[in-house]
Amino acid sequence: MVLLRRVIGDALRARRQSQQRTLREVSTAANVSLGYLSEIERGQKEASSELLSSICDALGAQLSEVLREVSDTMALAEQMESIPVGEPAASSAETATGAAKSTAAAAAHAPQLTDGQVSVAVRHDGPLKTTLRATRAGRQSADRDVVCAA
């Protein structure tokens, strides 16, 4: 299960970074503390609709645009849940070389789904850790560790 707050945080961070703006600049413009904005971007805090609107205004984006992007990513991630995945990534007991090979193999077998605008790849690194890579056409990708439902 992908957490909504993490996908929202990824979308906000991607927009801020694409504008080459700092957390301080956006937090000042949005009238939110730098630490709280950082927690929102990392998916550790749930932002209210009023706060999301303020952050979007500071980024020069429409709230509906950001939510549409989040919705697209969530829809693809939900579709990914039904696709079987490869072996978990290497354990800490493996050597550095073996771990690198296992991680590369797991990444190569990670299922990927795209709708033309958003591409999502999911790699299960263990029973409670999954790496979600969402790429929007024309933007850099962002890895996120997400908590899976057990």
Rank of each mutant, 00 (worst) to 15 (best):
S71D: 11
T135P: 01
V120G: 06
A14T: 11
L67A: 05
I40T: 05
A90E: 04
E39H: 10
D10N: 11
D72C: 07
A121W: 00
V70L: 07
L12C: 05
A14D: 08
N31D: 15
G60A: 09
A96S: 14
R24I: 13
Q117L: 09
G138D: 04
Y36K: 09
L3E: 15
E78K: 12
A47F: 00
G86N: 07
A106V: 07
S49E: 05
C56R: 02
A150Q: 06
P84Q: 04
G86L: 08
P88V: 08
I40N: 03
L59D: 04
D10Q: 07
H109Y: 07
P111D: 08
Q20V: 11
T103V: 15
A90D: 03
Q62C: 08
E69G: 01
D10V: 09
L34I: 12
G35I: 02
L52K: 01
Q62D: 14
R123M: 15
Y36Q: 15
M1P: 10
S53Q: 10
C148I: 13
H124C: 13
T130A: 14
Q17E: 15
T28N: 02
A149E: 13
D72S: 10
P127W: 00
H109T: 15
Q20P: 04
P127V: 10
G9Y: 01
D10E: 11
R13P: 06
L59N: 04
S38C: 12
A100F: 03
Q17S: 13
D143M: 10
L3K: 11
Q62F: 00
C148L: 14
Q44T: 13
Y36D: 08
A137R: 09
V147K: 05
V2Y: 02
A93V: 13
D10L: 06
A104S: 12
M80S: 14
R6L: 06
L132R: 07
A137Y: 00
